[in-house]
Amino acid sequence: MAGQASSAADVQPSQRWIPWMLMVPGIVWLTVFFAIPMFSMGKLSLENGGFSNYRNAFSDYRELIPRTFGYALAATVICILLGYPLAYVIAMRGGRRKNLLLALVVLPFFTTYLIRAISWRILLGDRGPVTRVLHSLHIIGQNTSIVGTAPAVIGALSYNFLPFMVLPIYVSLEKIDRKLLEVGPDLYASGWRTFRKVTLPLSLPGLFAGSLLTFIPASGDFINVEFVGSDAQRMIGNVVANNFVKEQFRPGLSALSFVLMAIILLGVLLYARLLGTEELV
């Protein structure tokens, strides 16, 4: 770090404007098209009824809000269960094939999001492979569909955000000094104990970042419900995307969007506290 810091030039007082000149176009763009829209949406959320828009967001969508975050949470947990071991094996036991394995994790996501959603529709369709296997094993009834159920939506969400979980965890595991891990067995600690006391705590920053990168987009998603869900699985994103064209709905949808953001923020803060990674926020 020290070497990196010293490579940055100390600017003469008369040249302080140089970095700002370089940044102005980008900052202006982000301010006008990212920050100001938040204000215009905030203003809109108070039109046609003021604060009652927020009250209505909660009362009209009493089931929608817990469902949305329930799905996002479930997908995040599944991503941890699938992604952590994968990241662990690549980082600790990948050897020379590390980069190849990482490339394989990312490669499926070079296809378009919508095409992956179509593939999930094929995978879970009534004559698709998963339904057939479950039918023949009598796990689900002959006339039961998987499409249009909560597990279908949660499965698709988990799949689409899995690499966002794997990559940050991999990065934090990779950084761990291997000598620390050799100390454990020398002190007669079991492999599990070494993992719990050394590896896991040191990988928490990656786990935290990965969870956010999964949870946030999953809670705003609406494409997966469109392809493998039904009205019964509607999420907040579906309500916004299906109604934004109609002008009279926009104030209510603005309020709903703020509710979505507020709950995400709350969840992130709680999670940071739970993991003890407050300094990351």
């Binding site: 829209p37 809109l44 987009p217 705003g220 998603d221 995307a241 603005s254």
Partner: peptide, 13 residues
Amino acid sequence: MPEVVMGFSLLTL
């Protein structure tokens, strides 16, 4: 930021 929120808020602008 969820994309839905970014997309929708930009539309309001």
